[in-house]
């Protein structure tokens, strides 16, 4: 990795000031260090070359899970393990719990943080081999004619083909969560669905966070329905989902009054499967409905040369998530 300066502030205020030190707004000049499980790897590969690294693990305000006026606030520096161990999260927000334990390595869960999970960089192997976020070589996109078995099947008309890596992303979008961010120009709340973006040029990032902004917390509404996340993975441990679905079902007795189905690891952002949402409204959960909702969820899929199987996996993930949320699995 390249040489960098290091700062370890104790307060959000100090952190914000440090992040503001940038002379320009180029992303990557200053990097926040949380658990470091992704950042350090990126730095070792020279894919991240910050001049200043700001450790936020010692900022108290960024830790912990607490109620906040109709919302539950999860501090950005809360570890994945702390989240998974939290009884309230387990019972009320199984979609978050399942996403957390789906990050199937105790070591990563012990170090990694909720904020880091949202801000981590995509695992696209062209990106990680130095071809940029959009995976271009001499102006030519590499993914469409290349090794694209793990790439996007939805919203993949280019120039971005990677899949959003965050397992929390889909759950947060389904739950209608918000991301709290702060910079020297003030604090703001970003709806989870707008936090993740599809970049259209190499200079853009896959999240809408500004270069000098810090994620401070995630806000989850108290009023949620039956929710869960279902992920499909090859290996039991140390593996990424090939496809995932998060669902939140507001119920009216035995029928769904409002459904939110969001797919993970299949598009450059968490993919809101609104067709499935519409289909599910007014229905009760059974195998047939779940199956059809799965089909609806992937109806606009446009698989690449090697990843048609992911369409099927996403469909199955939706079906199984619905049955699981409905207690029918």
């Amino acid at each position: 990795m390249e040489k960098f300066s290091y700062a370890s502030p104790k307060t959000v205020k100090e952190t914000v000031a440090l992040l503001d030190q940038k002379t320009n707004s180029n992303p990557g000049q200053v990097e926040v260090l949380a658990g470091g499980t992704d950042l350090i790897a990126m730095m070792k590969e020279y894919l991240a070359t910050p001049k200043l690294v700001v450790n936020i693990k010692d900022v108290h305000e960024l830790h912990g899970i607490r109620p906040e006026k109709g919302w539950v606030s999860i501090g950005a520096a809360t570890t994945l393990d702390d989240l998974a161990e939290n009884q309230m999260i387990r019972t009320k927000y199984p979609s978050l719990y399942e996403a957390a334990v789906g990050i199937t390595s105790p070591q990563i869960r012990n170090m990694g943080t909720v904020g880091g999970d949202l801000c981590q960089r995509p695992r696209c192997w062209y990106f990680r081999n130095g071809y940029g976020l959009l995976a271009m070589d001499n102006g030519k996109p590499l993914v469409p004619n290349g090794e694209n078995r793990f790439h996007a099947i939805l919203d993949n008309s280019g120039p971005a083909y990677f899949v959003s890596p965050s397992s929390f992303g889909p759950a947060l979008v389904a739950l209608g969560a918000k991301v709290k961010a702060i910079s020297s120009s003030g604090a703001r709340e970003i709806p989870a669905a707008e936090f993740f973006v599809k970049p259209t040029s190499e200079t853009q990032r896959e999240i809408s966070l500004k270069p000098n902004e810090l994620v401070t917390a995630i806000l989850i509404p108290e009023n949620v329905g039956k929710n869960t996340t279902y992920e499909i993975r090859e290996r039991q441990a140390m593996d990424w989902p090939l496809a995932a679905a998060a669902v939140d079902l507001k119920m009216n007795g035995g029928t769904i009054s409002q459904a939110r189905v969001v797919l993970g690891h299949v598009a450059p952002t968490p993919f809101a499967a609104t067709a499935a949402d519409q289909f599910l409204a007014g229905k009760s959960i059974d195998e047939k409905t779940a199956e059809e909702a799965g089909r609806q969820a992937v109806q606009s899929a446009t698989p690449l040369s090697q990843n048609a199987y992911k369409v099927r996996l996403a469909q199955v993930a939706v079906k199984r998530a619905l049955l699981q949320a409905g207690g029918k699995a």
């Binding site: 192997w125 990680r128 090794e147 793990f150 441990a237």
Partner: peptide
């Protein structure tokens, strides 16, 4: 995994050069 376009090995790591774990 070799990429014919770039000539590179795309999974020269232990993340996507997948080996079984004890649970597998």
């Amino acid at each position: 995994v070799m990429d014919q376009q770039t000539g590179k090995m795309l999974n020269a790591d232990m993340e996507f050069y997948k080996l079984a774990g004890i649970g597998d």
